[in-house]
Each structure stands twice: as C-alpha cells, then as structure tokens.
Amino acid sequence: MKNDYKQMLIDKYFEQNLSKKEQRQFDKLMQEDEGFKGDVDFERSVREAIEHDDLLDFRNKISHTIKKQNRKAIFRQITGTYWKYAASVVLVLGVGVSVLFFVNNRNSNDYLFKSAYTETKQDIQRSRISSASSVTVAEAMLNYHEGNYYNAIGYFKELLKKDQKNIAVRFYLGISYMETDNFEKASGSFRYIISDQNNLYIEHAEWYLGLCFLKQDEIDKAINQFTIIAQNDQNYYSSQAEKMLDKINRDF
C-alpha cells in the first residue's frame, strides 16, 4: 500500500470521514503495520499538544522573555525602576511623534526624558500601592516597547481606574492614543493634564495637544494652541511653537 494512501487514511480517520471499506483497511493497518500505528499515535499526540493555544502562547512568551533576558539591556531597566523605563519609552515615543510632524525635536526629548524621569520617580513612590498594580504598570511598559499600543492603552486605563489622578499614566495614555491615531482621545488626556494645573507634564501636554489639533485638521485650534505656547517665553516649547506657526502659515 502506498504511503500517500496511508496518509490519506490517517487524515480521513482524524476527520472522522472514513468509509466502511477504508475503516476496515485502517483497522487492519493498525493491527499489522507498526509504522502506521506509530504515525497515527504521533498525529494524535501532536493534535492534542497543539490544540492548547494558551499553552503555546505562554511558551512563546517565556522563550521570548528568556532570549530578551539573555540579551540583557531592556529588562535590567525594568527591574531597576518601572518608571525609569517608562521615561525612556516616552523618549522613544517623543522621537517618533516628532518625526511624524517633521520637527527636529532632539533637545526637547532629552528634556522630556529628564523631567518625566524626575516626576515619575516620585510617582512610582505613590504607585507602589500594591505589587499587583506594579505588574500592570510593567505590562503597559512592555506593550509600549513592543509597539502594542492598543494593549498598553488597556493597561493604562486599568491603572486609571485605580488612580484617576495619576498624571503620568494620563500622559502615556495620551501618547499611546496618538500612536494609534486616536487623536480625539489623546486630546482628552492632554486636556486633563493641562486643566490639572499642578504637574510637570503641562508643557508637554500643551505641545502634544497642538499636534493633535494639527493631525485632526483643526488648524485654527492648532494655531491657537501653538500661539499660547509661543507667547510664553518660559515654556520649553516656545521656540518650537513659533517655528510650527511659521510652517502652518506657510503651508496652509
């Protein structure tokens, strides 16, 4: 009997699609052909093993994590302090968003990093309410890093349920929304930060809110927002806002 035919019998057996004649042949082979029986047993085991998507998924995650750990860099930062990592993510995202808007923003990202780090170090002291919540923070950061912004948004929203006034979380949520092109919700996050009036993220939130307006083609609002920033000499984004206004006036 040809191997192709045997394979067809095995396929049909697992599809529960054997005719009576084929069933008889199958039973005979199971009794007389050790190789055939081995193939059937093997396929049964494989089917059983890989039907557990959750286990496969977890195994995959563990393998990736081990590889990453072995490459070291990233996870050292995470285990040092979550928010230090978060701040570096903001730096990365800041670069991304800046590129998005064709603005050379290197210095502001450095500033963003420093200020975010200072602030978030304080935040983590407050955030260490429970280890369980720390797990969520770390998950959000990991998802950020992997570019899984939708997942990160989910985690940040969970964190906000526990601590609605966490400005740092609001900020990262806002950036995540921007990365997923949800500029309306991003605007909401930045507006909250601005209206809070007592945090170190206000200048960044004002700037990103302006960018959100721009992306939504709300040019008047964008001009208004960048004008507010440009008029305040103390605002870190003041000169960038002026350049942005020049660009807008030139292009629109």
Binding site: I62, Q69, V135
Partner: peptide, 13 residues
C-alpha cells in the same frame, strides 16, 4: 495566570 511577561522576567532574574 495572565501569562505576564513582566512576571516571567522577574522570576527569571
């Protein structure tokens, strides 16, 4: 239970 990569990293370290 959540297959958290963070926890896996933590345990690994």
């Amino acid at each position: 239970k959540l297959k958290s990569q963070y926890v896996v990293s933590y345990l690994y370290e």
